[in-house]
Design a protein around this nucleic acid. Structure first.
Lengths: 223, 223
DNA sequence: GAACCTCCCTAGCGGTGTTCGGGAGAAACT
DNA sequence: AGTTTCTCCCGAACACCGCTAGGGAGGTTC
């Protein structure tokens, strides 16, 4: 009956596809991307799935578990770079692409802090980082350093970025914050107000890469 | 009547002190430190203050505003380092002490991500960072780089740290996470499981300082 | 004495995550 | 074929949440 074009059309329009965790996460992410985190609730999610909210708890233990699933799905959208001997370049590429994925789903990125990334996709990513560093010559201690510091840096940076408001070009803009700083009393915050202007036109990608470069260079010194 | 020893004793025990925003924030922080963020609510806070929850809204516009006040109070506990020509040392000291302050109030630190630090204490800190870098010879662009990157790094790191659970010595322990990693299937995450052991005994302060060192060194190259 | 201001109250609205018990329908076993 | 079991969804309800409206007691100011 799935060959039936009518049935197929119906199942496309009316979400006749069987409901499972993957579908729940998919719709959740869609809802988060379009409506934001603040209005997200189990009842709204259920409504989007043509279901009542208690039914969700058959598939998911709690809202927290759902959040974990959502986050790991986002992690899964981050492609692992190809295996090249240039460990520094690979880690840079990985960090940049993970940040980009997180910024593509700012509402989901807000879920990140306060959560330990223990899903399969996050672990696969962690394993890749550790493996890259070990194969580059780092011992186990520094390899674990590398994973933790990079993880903290990327997720911390990204989650802070979304706090400043997302811009149109996929890059966060500091316009509002810059304007706010400009309006501060000059005598109390002389240096802040002085640099408020240049904060306006900053591309955070550059600053992210700048700090990342420093961290990786610090690791390179230990080789 | 405040001279009356009986009245004084009563006002000590029964919190007869006048209620203002500072007192509200003080009790909020106390509640957060002892009970955690998850059980914190306006009703519970009101109960701890011997009032009913609607009365809070006379002093505070919303729960979000209260959170802002709490966070800025925590920022206020971070002492600014003395003015020395060693900008790198000063910023290191500042970053370390800010992180320590945040980890001293883990529940409050969880409020940090998703929030722009616009309170007076946070701004004073920002001004100090920017001023330090400008006086060290950085131009306005790099000074604003410095503030943003350091802010993102410190707050991101700290808020991620509390997610991994706080240890007794004021330093976060990764014991649980390390044990979790050890239990993973070796064939799927070969490198992660291999380094799970050394993750156990890691002091996150060292890793925090390690990454910080790299970031600051990257800035030093631009001088 | 009247008007105002400060600060707290009761009552209640609309929402939340979550649990409980049940029930319809498909599947599996006897 | 009948019975049991399993899957998945539902209605009702609980306890709690942030927050608002309206009011009232007590002090301060004209």
């Amino acid at each position: 009956m799935s060959d039936n074009p009518i049935g197929a059309a119906w199942s496309d329009d009316e979400t006749g596809t069987r409901l499972d965790r993957a579908e729940i996460v998919r719709v959740s992410l869609e809802l988060l991307d379009t409506q934001g985190l603040d209005t997200f609730s189990m009842r709204r999610l259920a409504q989007a799935l043509n279901i009542k909210s208690p039914s969700l708890y058959w598939h998911v233990r709690s809202k927290e578990e759902l959040y974990d699933l959502i986050i790991d799905t986002v992690y899964g959208r981050c492609a692992l770079p190809a295996q090249t001997p240039d460990w520094e370049g690979r880690l840079t590429e990985l960090a940049l692409s993970l940040r980009k994925v997180l910024l593509d789903h700012p509402a989901a990125a807000r879920l990140l802090p306060g959560r330990v990334p223990a899903g399969p996709n996050a672990l696969r990513l962690a394993d890749h980082v550790v493996g890259t560093m070990r194969r580059a010559g780092f011992d186990d201690t520094y390899a674990s350093y590398g994973y933790l510091i990079l993880h903290f840096y990327v997720t911390g940076f990204a989650s802070q970025e979304v706090a400043f408001g997302k811009g149109s070009a996929g890059d966060v803009r500091l316009a509002d914050f810059g304007a706010f700083l400009s309006g501060l009393p000059e005598e109390r915050y002389p240096d802040l107000t002085a640099v408020a202007g240049v904060m306006l036109d900053g591309r955070l990608t550059d600053r992210f890469a700048f700090g990342l470069e420093g961290i990786l260079a610090r690791f390179a010194r230990e080789l």
